[in-house]
Design a binder for these strands. Structure first.
Lengths: 339, 339
DNA sequence: TTGTATGCGTTATCAT
DNA sequence: ATGATAACGCATACAA
């Protein structure tokens, strides 16, 4: 591999100074038409491409942001990542990804991002830090946009209104006549699970239904699998007639257990999924589900990030709320023996 | 934000020269125990972190590789990406991702990666370039590892033996008594579709069955949706009794059409999916499917890349083959009226 | 309008 | 064994 051509080579070939080359290429300062042409000709002739590393060292900006997430292979996260990457690239930024399965990795990755002089971090921390003084995000000097997480200290963030969404789902099921509704969601250790549980309880209250702990599965650790829990729930003296569940894994496990027991969907069990269409299309009947737009969420993320980087937003942390909607499928019906 | 601490600050605080600081930190050259301690103390006291950009400019290596893929939100690709990211990071490298939906973007991204001085590129090009002289990958000076693609010019690559996999799937169905087997896969414009078609034809030949073009759907453009095609296929005078299909989207669409027509799986239609467990678990009965290990594929990718970067592999391009296996579910049965 | 010179933070090559 | 200094490729303040 021959050594790359630099500004110096271009300057020599064009018979001008390196300063002039730089000025023409960056449209900074004055440059006569003749000089301009000479430089541009030399550039194309030599196939010059500026070295990003050197420019970076000189100007101090990398035009790159980091994306910290617990698990890239999670389909929902991958879709969000995908949209963010596209939007940032359109804005001239590139994306460095880092997966952080543990809180310790959060800190490590943030330091890594800082040392690489990234200009900001979009993050879905795997855990929330109750104490701001030990929270690595608080300590990080970079602009940060949180996705559906709360970290005590106020950060720019894009939040999904899970509370509202679950409320709608529960109300819909109640309208159909359901009184025993199971909820499978993620741990209350992070915002999505916490808000879903809150929305669930609020909606039950509004409907005058009792909250039954036995019907909710919000695993902190996976001591008990969704399969096991679903089995136990179906053996209750008063089993649920409806299920609201997140994601592909939990939902598929729960539904399979139900079907293995001979239950028909929606005749014996109504089901509402939470997630994207794509994955849930596989089920038959198509599952009624709670969805929100990744596109909108990603746009908000990128907007907040760019505003913060450019300094357009210098004030306090901003929150953007994204609203889910209930998309009707064929997985819900009136319970068989409505009370 | 206060200005960062540099080697100079550390040197001053430790009462030594910047050269000594660098030597201690990089374990290069000599350093007495006393000097060593003084430097290390100053480093921790000031919280010094080396600037990656400057180091990069000086040493010429970025310890970063690019990952070029058509679509991050594709679950299979996301899983591969996820594993690659983890393995590379363990080896001290970071990953810059770039999604390229069109061939024009391939070139743009590769140039981008070159200018950013990445040390290599792992790529799943969206299209294959028949003419090596117009292939941007051939022009790219960086080490390249291709994932399940062939680009004429020999590149390091990790390939899946789709031909073998489809062969197994067809043979299994033939053993059950099927004679009309439909195939839904990606376009023959890239390797996966091409190899699948080849494996399909070979297996039919071996079984003494005729190839019927009407039963294969390998869309180049999506002029016709999987739904439409499946509808047409089921209206044939001799409709298929079995279906082999890739991915979540095609498979779910095809299966849904079949079910809407009242067909039962596996009684009226046997189904073999190609992809990962996770997604296909949603179906009931669980779908028999062709799988290969993303972990193994990713490991091979990273190994090839690191060998090429380190210079350990200086010879001709290497190919690593990954073999799929048929995982039994409950979506296949003998055809209703076996000939 | 253009050329020259300095510095970004490191590493590495020289002296000492 | 350690300290001074050049150079990586670029942008820019300043001189011309």
């Amino acid at each position: 591999m021959s050594t790359r051509v630099s500004v110096r080579d271009v300057a020599r070939a064009a018979g001008v100074s390196i300063g002039s080359v730089s000025r023409v290429l960056n449209d900074s300062g004055y440059a006569s038409a003749a000089l301009r042409k000479a430089v541009l000709d030399a550039v194309t002739r030599l196939g010059y491409e500026p070295d990003h590393t050197a420019r970076q060292l000189r100007t101090g900006h990398t035009r790159a942001v980091g994306y910290l997430l617990p698990d890239i292979s999670n389909p929902a996260m991958a879709m969000h990542l995908s949209a963010v990457e596209r939007l940032l690239r359109e804005a001239g930024y590139s994306l460095l990804i880092g997966s952080s399965e543990t809180p310790a990795r959060d800190q490590e990755l943030l330091r890594y991002f800082e040392n690489h002089r990234l200009e900001g971090v979009i993050a879905l921390p795997v855990a929330e830090y109750p104490d701001p003084s030990t929270c690595p995000f608080t300590a990080c000097g970079l602009p940060i946009v949180l996705v559906d997480r709360e970290l005590g200290h106020p950060f720019d963030s894009v939040l999904v209104d899970h509370r509202l969404g679950i409320g709608q789902a529960v109300e819909y099921l109640v309208t159909l006549g359901h009184q025993r509704i199971a909820l499978f969601a993620s741990s209350v250790a992070t915002r999505p699970g916490r808000e879903k549980l809150a929305g669930y309880r609020e909606a039950l209250d509004r409907a005058g239904l009792a909250f039954d702990e036995a019907l909710v599965y919000l695993p902190d650790q996976w001591l008990e699998s969704p399969r096991e829990r679903m089995s136990a729930i179906l053996q209750l003296s008063r089993p649920p007639t409806a299920l609201i569940s997140i994601g592909t894994h939990m939902l598929s496990a729960a539904v399979r257990v139900a079907r293995e027991r001979g239950l028909d969907i929606p005749r014996d069990l109504s089901v509402i999924g939470i997630g994207t269409t794509e994955m849930l299309e596989l089920m038959y009947p198509p599952v009624t589900s709670l969805r929100y737009s990744f596109e909108r969420s990603s746009q908000a993320c990128v907007r907040l990030m760019l505003e913060r980087i450019s300094g357009a937003a210098a004030g306090p942390a901003q929150q953007v709320m994204v609203y889910p909607e209930l998309v009707m499928g064929g997985s819900c019906a009136r319970p068989r023996c409505a009370a």
